[in-house]
Write a protein that binds this DNA or RNA. Sequence first.
DNA 1: CTTTGTGCAAAGGCTTTGCATGCTT
DNA 2: AAGCATGCAAAGCCTTTGCACAAAG
Lengths: 136, 136
Amino acid sequence: MTSTDHTRATGPRNTRQRSEIRRAVEDLPTFASAQEIHDRLRHDGSGVGLATVYRTLQAMAAGGELDAIRTPDGQIAYRICSPGHHHHLICRRCGRTVEVNIPSLEQQIRALAAEQGFAQVDHELEFFGTCAACAG
Amino acid sequence: MTSTDHTRATGPRNTRQRSEIRRAVEDLPTFASAQEIHDRLRHDGSGVGLATVYRTLQAMAAGGELDAIRTPDGQIAYRICSPGHHHHLICRRCGRTVEVNIPSLEQQIRALAAEQGFAQVDHELEFFGTCAACAG
DNA sequence: CTTTGTGCAAAGGCTTTGCATGCTT
DNA sequence: AAGCATGCAAAGCCTTTGCACAAAG
């Protein structure tokens, strides 16, 4: 090669849409679906397209910037979370979310996997309930 | 009321389709989606309709006759399981399934719910991995 | 200038539903 | 005879994809 080096990993480009989506996600009070996030953006005057929201959220989740969960009715919901592995306790009514760590579970899973001869065991565990405020 | 008593709960009717679906489900080697079960039935000569399969599986799951899980890609899969609460360790490749009990988890969930003031906390936990046979 | 991101609309996949007909009870 | 179950096709929903255009590096 002669002059320019095109081999470096550059990461995603900084577009207006990406910034807007990131900000929207940072402002999220609870887990929200791509469509809900899109609605918020539109409501706030952004002209970002739905497909872009889907693509960007997907990319951010893949990059670990975002947590993605599957709600009981099958939608994917996103939210910014603390780093590291954890689970969520989510209020079905208001969406209030508590992050939960269950170290003993992780241990048991490793034991279980070994015992059964399974490898690359993924687990996804979320809790859905009704919080005190909403039950009251 | 004068003569006939129509207040008794009678349960679902005994139709040919329902029997066929039940038998198909009993023969399932692994969790299978409504469409897969429908395919099997058609393949075995049954003319049962897809909508009926969906409706029947849904009803059976609601009635506790069947376990329903949501696969990582969002489909619903059904299978006959042992009674009582348990989870599954499922091979992504071949579908081999191991039933798993994690009593300590159930305890922790109760504790967690109490501690956070949440009620009616549901949890759904399934494990997806690669079994020894498929990894080999 | 090259490459990636965006928008729009169309397509896709799974699931549900409306309605007329058939079968159970 | 009365009412739930079935079939078919259409509709629904969420999500992904194709393609032309705009923007970033």
